[in-house]
Design a protein around this nucleic acid. Structure first.
Lengths: 351, 351
DNA sequence: ATGAAAGCGCTAACAT
DNA sequence: ATGTTAGCGCTTTCAT
């Protein structure tokens, strides 16, 4: 019996083995397994039964080679320890899985070089398309040649969150600008007028957009912009945030804060509390966030929530749809997944 | 010129194209690119130069088909939003990258079925080996056939953290038992004798080990075991933790707590504080953890820290070493990556 | 030093 | 209804 041989040799069952077993040609087997009308019902049945019983699986590499499609997508994430990116990944995985795609995942560690090498490595027929969020370094240095090369090489890219304006590809973004406007308005409508803006992302485009949104929000609320209230934290290490904020908070009179991330929001809360404030009674905090910290802090953070999973799902949908369309019909699109303000316990009307 | 054609057709450059370009055979090109001694220096040079200039990359699927190796490893993670798993992933990625391996990553969502299907899906020549941590459901139902099948199919598995005792494969684990013993001793040595144990993992083996370690620790410190102090939280949702703990804390006299995870530690702190305790002055908390929460809570949590990244790195090392060894020399091993007690602000001597 | 041919596992156009 | 053949891109043995 075949399976004995298979068990002993531990070699996978192939179409050729099956052909041999039934004394038919390999193309008959191939067609039978693909349920071709050309093959008689009886042979189809026996071949399919045998294949099933012996756990036949078409070889992935042979199929990919033949079809010039791998049904695999690559994803490059700047930092896997970031909760937002983990959420995006989850969204991508879900859709990819539903649609029969595998995911090769890579981490750029915010490095241009790693990102570039990864793209190179994947451009050898390993994958059909790529989903990525730019490395910090790439965004700062604005060197996008590797993206262009990849796209020119026939591999479509979908960028999310940290996207390159000058690259023509699908993009999934958040309404960073409007989110910041809303945050300001939320605070203003509840009586806060001395609103600071704390950014740890001033070097990134999403940081600039949130900054601009903050300004716009103040304008809309007729609050004069005071540049002292705009605090850009350059330190990489969140442990330093409190130290940076303490002297500033001591100097300024602040009743509300909007931050570009969770860690700095928590630092701001701590500093404010240490200074004698009660959060949220006389000091409110809103953070851009997707995270776990917001729901575990005391008090829990009110946030401008990005929908990471949705963004990932949208990215995967876009990419897979494109892959399954003829090249001529493909065109690029930018999809905005809107933020929501989620009220928790760090905000409260002043009156 | 070739590259014009390539640019227009967007088809990747192959060995055949190069052969055509120079009017030599494909085997000459193949050998030249592999720097074979059989080929004259001059032809090697010109072919290599041309290949480089035109960005030739050997086709991944053709190579994999030929070599019966993909230089790709699969990783199955129960839940990507868990910081520990993200850390493990990072460790795996680092080593894999260094050693020229790609990673196909999948999420089991704690589901046996998904885990099983994923294993099936990957067992078609997509990958050379697998790293995984069991889904909760798998561990509860103790149905390990899919692991056996995979291993019998010639695909080595390395399990980490949530491992199956009865499966013969490489394993990377933490010293859960000893970690719990140490935690108890740490509290006891600093004057705490009314130590509760809060577990959200009582259904998992790692949870049982931590539980047993807690008992052992008490014994070593000559503290009688009081089953009322052993609190198993069954709720899945961390939002419920506080509700579960409140009546218990009201009833019992507790001066220290050890938890199996961060969320329940934070819940315990909140409940204790609400009850009038001062953490850490008259109430200490130690949490098993790998996480961000511990470093952002107020006060920051003292933890039994698992080294997720190291575990991931060890898993990848093991697997890749095994893949590069002949089958005969392969043997299984269990590696223990020890925990550390990291003192932060949630513990303090009582005296 | 170079080339021809077989084969990895599969599909599909083209016989029969 | 079944088989033959070529080919996906590459390596490798065996000519020449």
């Amino acid at each position: 019996m075949y399976f004995v041989v298979q068990f002993l040799s531990m070699k996978k069952l192939t179409i050729k083995d099956i052909a041999h077993h039934f004394n038919v040609s390999i193309s008959t087997v191939s067609k039978a397994l693909n349920d071709s009308y050309e093959i008689s019902v009886s042979t189809k049945e026996k071949i399919q039964k045998f294949a099933k019983e012996n756990n036949y699986k078409p070889n992935f590499n042979a199929l990919s080679l033949k079809n010039r499609k791998t049904k695999t997508i690559g994803i490059i994430i700047p930092n896997m320890l970031n909760y937002f990116f983990a959420q995006v990944f989850k969204g991508v995985e879900k859709v990819a899985n539903e649609r029969g795609y595998k995911i090769i995942s890579c981490i750029s560690n915010e490095s241009f070089e790693k990102e570039s090498e990864t793209l190179e490595m994947l451009s050898n027929g390993s994958i059909d398309g790529i989903i990525l969020s730019m490395a910090e370094q790439t965004e700062i240095e604005k060197d996008y040649r590797h993206f262009k090369n990849t796209i020119n090489g026939g591999i479509p890219i979908v960028m999310f969150d940290r996207v390159a304006d000058s690259i023509d590809c699908d993009k999934i973004i958040t309404n960073d600008f409007d989110g910041a406007v809303s945050a300001v308005q939320h605070l203003s409508k509840t009586g806060h007028k001395k609103i600071a803006f704390i950014s740890t992302l001033s070097h990134l485009n999403i940081g600039r957009l949130r900054h601009q949104g903050y300004i716009k929000g103040l304008e809309k609320e007729n609050i004069p912009v005071n540049t002292e209230y705009i605090i850009n934290i350059k330190e990489d290490d969140y442990k330093e945030y409190e130290n940076v904020l303490t002297p500033i908070f001591n100097k300024l009179d602040i009743d509300g804060v909007i931050t570009t991330d969770e860690s700095s929001a928590i630092a701001a809360m701590k500093v404010a509390i240490r200074k004698g404030h009660k959060v949220p009674d006389d000091f409110s905090v809103i953070a851009f966030s997707n995270g776990i910290l917001a729901r575990h802090s005391s008090p829990k953070l009110t946030t401008v929530s990005q929908h990471g999973e949705q963004m990932g799902a949208a990215a995967a949908e876009r990419l897979i749809n494109k892959l399954q369309k003829p090249k001529e019909e493909q065109q690029n699109e930018t999809i905005v997944i809107k933020t929501d303000i989620v009220e928790r316990k760090s905000t409260k009307p002043l009156f």
